[in-house]
Design a protein around this nucleic acid. Structure first.
Length: 427
RNA sequence: GGAGAGAUGGCUGAGUGGUCGAAAGCGGCGGUUUGCUAAACCGUUGUACAGUAUAAAGCUGUACCGAGGGUUCGAAUCCCUCUCUCUCCGCCA
């Protein structure tokens, strides 16, 4: 959510910033609504004030044994007037709120203007894509060839966009997750947390998936429904919902491994092969809550932490900054890390690191106490994948494949693989 | 799933229809005393929105006693629904 004060006082700047996203903000319409809201609010508060005063008068008169009938007559129609005005105020307020909840975040000046992912800007490349002396396979052929990846079984159980992993490949995923958690918790100063995978709608409103992206979520038929988390960002960021954090507690840095569930509505036909785009996948997520002054630096740091994972795994990648047409709804600035996939001869997203500034904090009323002012102020939230385990698995299979169909285990994962140095065909 | 108890400010806890944003204690902050610490004493102490004024501070109003609804001129207090916590029983990884 954008600061409503800013929407009122600087509508033009807001509109031109959001126009970079190709989003039209009707500042005049908003201002008109808000004007009416203010007038009504004043009216309602005056009526209430009047009611409170006369209630007090009646109480006093009654305790002194005076006749209260004339006083009662005087406030006869007050209740109906108040109820009516209050109802209209409620309607206006929810209209305003719907507008506010539907506005994407303001963009950082660094964000390049563009219309789609083709306009994202590359910042750096790390690692040299390996030269193969044989034709490299994609992860599906490698995994199926090893007898450790079974999409037929997955389809029988759950349909498309699911996978079944067996044996060494399942173990490799577990090793990856362990390795990532250990690195972030042990070397990067994050606190490991375990969180619910089913959340209430309020949590998704807080991080910005609702109300706009209802269709992307899985939800249960309970009343009220539970939503399956699309990312650990949702439960972890909501750890600070409705709270005031002392300055000494900041920055807060959390790392969590969770499964992620996405309906992938609207992506029919994209990445239908293999494990790239699944309804369910594992991810290690980094979340930070920081003082506003530090959030830009924190984004660089957090992105660096995700990069360390790829570097330790020896996976070539590039870092890009998302353009205004591709950046997420709530993000102020986003770096994506894209890992090299020899099977696709392409860099593919494996991590997305974003600074949300106060966008999520305002929605969830997450604040800190600024020692300079002594007042509670909104804090800044950031998150990034550190990294997506499913896609990291894909990258390892493709980058570490050998001519005989086996896959070498990256050195960083050896301590987690129980002595296995290679993934070999099951005998 | 069954039975019962509860939810009040940073914390403990009083408050069963009116002057209650809410006693008291603890904690926090400021001060007095003090060689330092401690103790004692005095003062102060929530959040949000709106109005008004300003260089700032402020002042005024409204809302908030788990959430939502109801009764009433008036609700922390009465009624209804829900959520959560605790205890006991049952079931269970």
């Amino acid at each position: 959510m954008i600061d409503p004060k800013l929407l009122r006082t600087s509508a033009d700047e807001v509109a031109s910033n959001l126009a970079r996203r190709n989003f039209q903000f009707d500042g005049e319409g908003y201002a008109n609504l808000d004007c009416r809201r203010k007038a009504l609010q004043v009216e309602v508060e005056n009526l209430r004030s009047e009611r409170n005063a006369s209630a007090k008068r009646i109480g006093k008169a009654k305790s002194q044994g005076e006749d209260i009938a004339p006083l009662l007559a005087a406030v006869e129609d007050l209740g109906a007037k108040l109820e009516d005005a209050d109802k209209n105020l409620g309607i206006l307020q929810s209209e305003l709120r719907n507008i506010e909840l539907g506005l994407p975040n303001l963009l950082h000046d660094d964000v390049p203007v563009g219309t789609n992912e083709d306009d994202n800007r590359e910042i750096l490349r790390w690692g040299e894509p390996r030269k193969f002396d044989f034709e490299p396979l994609d992860h599906v052929d490698i995994g199926v060839g090893l007898g450790t990846l079974d999409f037929d079984a997955a389809a029988r159980i759950s349909g498309s966009r699911f996978s079944v992993m067996q044996g060494s490949l399942a173990r490799l995923q577990r090793a990856l997750i362990q390795f990532m958690l250990d690195t972030h918790a042990g070397e990067h100063g994050y606190e490991e947390v375990y969180v619910p995978y089913l959340v209430q709608s309020e949590a998704l409103f807080g991080t910005g998936q609702l109300p706009k992206f209802e269709n992307d979520q899985f939800k249960t038929i309970d009343d009220p429904p539970f939503y399956l988390i699309p990312t650990a960002e949702v439960p972890v960021t909501n750890l600070v919902r409705d709270s005031i954090i002392e300055a000494t507690e900041l920055p807060m840095k959390f790392v969590a491994h969770t499964p992620c569930f996405r309906s992938e509505a609207g992506s029919y036909g994209r990445d239908t092969r293999g494990m790239i785009r699944q309804h369910q996948f594992e991810k290690v997520e980094l979340v930070q809550m920081v003082e506003p002054a530090n959030s830009n630096a924190a984004l660089e740091e957090l992105t660096g932490h995700a990069e360390v994972i790829l570097q330790k795994l020896g996976l070539p990648y590039r870092k890009i900054i998302l353009c205004s047409g591709d950046i997420g709804f709530g993000s102020h600035k986003t770096y994506d890390l894209e890992v090299w996939l020899p099977g696709q001869q392409a860099y593919r997203e494996i991590s997305s690191c974003s600074n949300y500034v106060d966008f999520q904090a305002r929605r969830m009323q997450a604040r800190w106490r600024n020692p300079e002012t002594g007042k509670p102020e909104l804090l800044h939230t950031l998150n990034g994948s550190g990294v997506a385990a499913g896609r990291a698995l894909v990258a390892i299979l493709e980058n570490y494949q050998e001519a005989d169909g086996s896959v070498t285990v990256p050195a960083a994962l050896l301590p987690y693989m129980g002595g296995a140095e290679k993934l070999m065909r099951k005998t």
